[in-house]
């Protein structure tokens, strides 16, 4: 049974062409565009890691938010409530499937970038990058679930995603140094998960570097908080919180 569900979730995610465009094609184009423009190897490495991180955010946050909203509005969760299968099991299968694809996709983006621009690859960086991408995907997917619960429609998903993504990306050192930025910008950036995620991907590219435990803790904390909020605010019906004003 789980095999059928996992396969179906993988297929439905892989056939979502729009999300694949934003999470795979666009980051690759962006990466090549930027990396060709900045021909400094150090800067190129920065760009590869930054683009990989952005792809994770798009796939994790917006991808899951739209998927959950769609399923909820079409009555999938209503039907699931009438089956012996626990709803949370279905959601767990969905997250695992999306994480598997997310890791494969983002790791491919990173690998394409590293190989194309002649970056040094080590077994350490190849393996650890996969692990960090997995943690990042789970983190942003969990936040995407919170967005899906808070939003009432597709427009609100876009709005809320942008509200979170834009400050996360612009207040991070993914593409440029924040050394010259006001202190409060760097401070807020460090409170957000994206900065720590890009930090983890970037630092592990240097030989002999150790993982930033603080960044890892921040991501895990975000995962725990987001899952907690998502489970508290989860709605299986679009009108669940609006029942007081709904029609019969």
């Amino acid at each position: 049974m789980l095999k059928v569900q996992m396969r179906s979730m993988l297929v439905t995610s892989l056939r979502d062409k729009i999300t694949l465009f934003y999470s795979l094609l666009l980051p690759i184009v962006l990466m090549f565009g930027l990396a060709i423009f900045f021909d400094n190897p150090e800067q190129q490495l920065h760009i590869i890691c930054g683009v990989t991180a952005i792809s994770t955010v798009f796939w994790g946050m917006q991808g899951i938010a739209f998927q959950v909203h769609w399923q909820r509005s079409r009555g999938v969760y209503k039907l699931l409530m009438l089956t012996p299968m626990p709803l949370m099991q279905f959601i767990a299968v969905m997250i695992v499937a999306r994480t598997v694809i997310g890791v494969a996709m983002n790791w491919s983006i990173w690998l394409i970038g590293m190989l194309s621009f002649g970056m040094k690859l080590t077994a350490w960086s190849i393996g650890l990058t996969q692990l960090i991408i997995m943690i990042g995907t789970i983190c942003f997917t969990s936040i995407g679930f919170v967005i899906a619960n808070a939003a009432r429609n597709e427009a609100q998903i876009n709005m809320l995603s942008n509200l979170l993504q834009m400050p996360m990306i612009f207040m991070s050192s993914a593409f440029y140094s924040l050394d010259g930025a006001p202190a409060w910008v760097a401070f807020i950036g460090k409170l957000l998960p994206f900065e720590h995620y890009t930090n983890l991907i970037s630092t592990m590219q240097s030989a002999g570097s150790s993982i930033s435990i603080l960044s890892l803790i921040v991501l895990v904390l975000y995962i725990m908080i987001a899952i907690l909020i998502a489970s508290i605010t989860f709605r299986w019906d679009t009108n669940q919180l609006m029942l007081k004003s709904s029609t019969a």
Partner: peptide, 11 residues
């Protein structure tokens, strides 16, 4: 069978 059709896209 609900009024909305709950099918998974792509499947």
């Amino acid at each position: 069978q609900l009024q909305a059709v709950p099918f998974f896209p792509g499947l």
